[in-house]
Design a protein around this nucleic acid. Sequence first.
DNA 1: TGCGGCATTGAAAGCGCTTCCAATCTGCGC
DNA 2: GCGCAGATTGGAAGCGCTTTCAATGCCGCA
Lengths: 345, 345
Amino acid sequence: MNGKKPTIDDVARLSGVARVTVSRVLNGGPNVRPAVRTKVMEAVKALDYKVNPQARSLAGGASRTLGFVFNSDPESEPNSYYEAALELGALRACVTLGYQLLIHQIPLDAPDQQRRILELIDDQRCEGLILCPPFSDDLALVETALARGCKVAAVSPGPSARTLIDGVGVDDEAAGYDLTCALIRLGHRRFGFIAGLEAHLSAERRLDGFRRALADHGLGDDACLIRRGDFTFRSGTRLTPEMLDDANPPSVLVCANDDMAAGALAAAHARGLDIPGDIAITGFDDAPVASIVWPPLTTVHQPVKLLGQRAVELLVGRLTGAVMDGPQFQQLDHALVCRQTTKAF
Amino acid sequence: MNGKKPTIDDVARLSGVARVTVSRVLNGGPNVRPAVRTKVMEAVKALDYKVNPQARSLAGGASRTLGFVFNSDPESEPNSYYEAALELGALRACVTLGYQLLIHQIPLDAPDQQRRILELIDDQRCEGLILCPPFSDDLALVETALARGCKVAAVSPGPSARTLIDGVGVDDEAAGYDLTCALIRLGHRRFGFIAGLEAHLSAERRLDGFRRALADHGLGDDACLIRRGDFTFRSGTRLTPEMLDDANPPSVLVCANDDMAAGALAAAHARGLDIPGDIAITGFDDAPVASIVWPPLTTVHQPVKLLGQRAVELLVGRLTGAVMDGPQFQQLDHALVCRQTTKAF
DNA sequence: TGCGGCATTGAAAGCGCTTCCAATCTGCGC
DNA sequence: GCGCAGATTGGAAGCGCTTTCAATGCCGCA
C-alpha cells in the first residue's frame, strides 16, 4: 500500500510470468498449466490486486456495462415500486455476473428520448440495454439499437418486440382473465376497468384477458365501463367518481395496477362507501402499497424483482455468446392474491 | 459511419490541429485561441465525435463516476420511496454535471458491507461516494474512504460525520420539535413515539426534538411511550397494538417515518378505531404513501429528491476543486403537512 | 530417432485519451 | 530594434489491459 495500486505487471513480476499469462488467468483463458494458474492467483491475493475496469474495456473493447432504461415523469414522485424493484433485481444480477448497471431515467415528455438512449450506446458505455415499459415496445428504438450492434432485453415486451429481442414478463392476458373469472364467480356482473397508458402493451393485455373472460361468460360489452388512467394514484382517484356516477354503476373496479387501485380506494372512501360491500376493487402487481392501504388490496402478484434479474441474465447470456438462437421470451408465474377489497375467493 | 467510431485523432486531422489541442478544447482548457476552438468544435460536430470515457479515465485517472450507496434488506421489498427519490435526484444532477452514477445496494446484514463499499474505490471505479443513512454515520467507513483519497458526501449525516464530510439534510431536531409543539397545541398530553433504527442518527434527532418539545411544555418522561421499529410498515403494525394496550394509552402516535405511520394506521383500523378521534397519527418524509393511505397522513415534508441532487452537487464541487474549505452541511427546509390523521392545525 | 502438431508462454502492438515538457509565437518595455 | 514573459501549440510518453502472432516446449506416431 505504498501509494500506488498494484497493476497487472506487478502481479506478473511477483509470480514470475509474463503479463499476458496473468491476463489469461484472470480471464479464465485456456492453455495455462494449473501450477502456473495457482502461482498467479497467489500473487493476486498477496498484492490484493484488482483489475482496472477502464483499462480492460479500453483494451478489450467491452465495457461490461449495461444500461437500464426506464421512464419517469420528472414532476411526479417516482412511481417507486415497479421501477425500483426492477432495478433492484437487475442490480443484484449484475453484481453476481460482474457487470455494472448504468441507470437511465428518461422523462416521459423528453422530445429527445430516443437520442438520449442511443447516446448511451454511441458513448460506447453500454454493451447492452435493459428496456422497461413503455420503451420495451418502442420498435424504432429497438431496431436502431440492434442496428448499432447493441444487445437488448426487455421487461414485459409486447408481441412485436418479442420477435426482435429477448424479454421477460408474466402472462398478462391470462392474469387478467383469471382475475376476472374469479370476480364473476363472486357474482359480479357489472364491471369498471381502469386501464393504464396504451403504450404499455403488456398492461393492455390485462384488458384483453378481462374482455375474454367477460365474453366467455356471456357478458357483453355493456357489462363494462372502461376508462384510461396513467398508472398513478391520482388518475385512480380522478376516474373513480365518474364511473361510480354512471347510470348503471359497476359493482367492482378492476385496475391495471395497484397505484390506480389505491386511488380508486381513496375515492371510494371519500364517498363513505363500504369496501367491498358497496364496491369491490382490484389492483395488479402486488406492490407494497397493496398491503398498506385499508383494506388491503386484492391484486395479482407479479415477481417484479425477479423480472429485473432475469432480464439481466438474458442480456448477459447474449453478450457472452452463451445464447445464440433467436429471441426468447421468458414467462414467469403470476398469482392471484385475494385480500380484502373483494369478497374471499 | 463507415463502421468505426471517430476518435480524437480523426477530429484533430479534420480540424488541422494536434490531438492535444483537441483534448484541450474538449476539456475547456485555457490557452486556445477562439478561432481554433471553433474550428475544433465544428469538426467534432461534423464527425459526431464523442469522447470515449474509458480511454479518458484511463489516461486521466478520473472516472467521472460516483458511487451511490444505500442499504436495503434483500428479503424485504425495496423501501422504495426514500431511496428511490434520493437516487432519482442524484441521477438527475449527474446527468447535468456529466457524471455517471453507479448504484450500490448493500444488504443490511452483509458481514462484508464495508469491504464491498471500499471495493468500489479500490476498483478505481468511483471518484466519490454518496452515502445514504445509515452509512452516512459509519465513521470508520468514512475515514477509510477519505484515507484512500475518495471524496464523500452524505445524505442526512449526524453531527460527527458532519465534521468529516459534506452533507445535506433537513433540521430533523427542529422538525420533531415543531411537529410535537403543534400536537401539544392540539391538546395532546399523552404521546407514543415509534422510533426508527438507532443507527440512523438523523432520524434519531427527530426523537430529540420531540423530547425537547415535551420538556418545554412541562411534560415529563411519563408523558410518552417510546418504542423502536425499523422504518418498515410491518414494524408499525407490530408496535402499535402494544402501545394502545398500555394502561395509560397515548392519544397520538408520532412515527419516525411514513411507512411506520402507515403501519400504525393499519393497526388502528384493524381495531376499529376512529382516526384521529380515538388516536391521532403522524409520519415523517411526506412520501407518496402519506397521501395514499386513508385517511391521508399528517406528516413532515422533506425534499428527498432535492437532497439527492444536492449531495451530488456538493460532491462534484469537491471533486473539481471548486470548493476547498472544510466540510459543509447544507440544510434544506422541512415543512409540516397537516392532513387528516390529526385534527387540523 | 525424427517430425508434425498441439499445448503453453511471451513479445509487441495498440485501445483512445491525457499529462508533461519543450517549441514556437506573441506582445510589450526600453 | 532587442529581449523576455506569457500565450499557444505540438511531440512524446504513457495509463493498465487485451489481442494478435511468433516462439518455445512437449507428446505421440512412424
